[in-house]
Simulated scan of single mutants.
Amino acid sequence: MSWQDYIDKQLIGSKNISQAAIAGHDGNVWAKSDGFNVSKEEIVRLMAGLGDPTQFHMNGVHVNGTRFVYLSGNDQVVRAKKDKMGLHCVKTNQAVIVATYNDPIQPQQAASTAEGLGDYLIQCGY
């Protein structure tokens, strides 16, 4: 399965994710959904925040040109929100999954889908 297939079939195809990207830890985007223009700089800042989330408390989480309010996270997961849109990011061994969802999708649905793919990629060595 290609990286784009993971985006199209596993994430967007689940109907639990509105837009998504998969990128390497270095910020290079491997695949993304149409219209989701997450930048290398945003990915690099996201990766840095996974190691030290205090910057998210002060500055929020920036993805696709949008500032999200940081809700919670740890060294592998970031949860954030802006109005009726949510953000769920999952770090794997080599990649990061960046996924947004819109109302009426519930945060738990998006989390389950994104983290499920993250777990699978970790099992595959990614």
Results as ranks from 00 to 15, higher is better:
Y101P: 05
N16D: 14
L117I: 05
F36G: 12
A114S: 15
V38C: 02
G65N: 11
L11W: 01
M85T: 15
G125K: 09
L121K: 07
K9L: 12
D5Y: 02
L50W: 00
G118V: 11
G13F: 00
R67D: 04
C89I: 06
I97Q: 04
K15L: 10
G116V: 10
H57V: 15
V98E: 05
S33F: 00
K91E: 04
G13D: 09
V98Y: 00
L46V: 07
I43N: 02
Q19M: 06
G51K: 09
W30R: 14
S2E: 12
R45Q: 14
L121F: 03
P107A: 05
H57F: 04
G24K: 03
V44P: 00
Q94A: 11
G86V: 05
D119Y: 11
F36P: 13
G60P: 02
N16Y: 06
W30G: 08
D26H: 05
K32C: 12
G49T: 04
S33K: 03
Q10D: 15
P104N: 09
H88G: 01
Y70C: 08
A31M: 03
C89F: 00
A23G: 11
R67F: 00
K84V: 12
S39H: 03
S72P: 02
K9I: 10
Q4S: 13
C89R: 03
G49R: 01
L11K: 08
H57P: 01
Q76K: 15
G65Q: 12
Q123P: 02
M1Y: 07
V98R: 02
M1E: 13
V90W: 03
W30C: 10
M47D: 07
G125F: 09
V44N: 03
I105K: 09
D8Q: 11
E41L: 11
S2F: 00
M47N: 12
K91R: 15
A111M: 06
N37S: 11
R45F: 02
K91V: 05
D52F: 00
G86L: 07
M58Y: 06
G73C: 04
L71V: 07
A99M: 05
D75F: 00
A110M: 04
L11R: 07
L50C: 07
K32E: 12
H88Q: 09
V96D: 02
M58R: 15
G86S: 06
I97E: 04
V61P: 09
D34K: 12
C124F: 10
Q19D: 13
V69N: 14
K91N: 09
Q123W: 10
D119G: 13
Q94C: 07
F56E: 08
E115Q: 14
G73A: 07
L121T: 03
G35Y: 03
K40T: 14
I97R: 04
I17H: 04
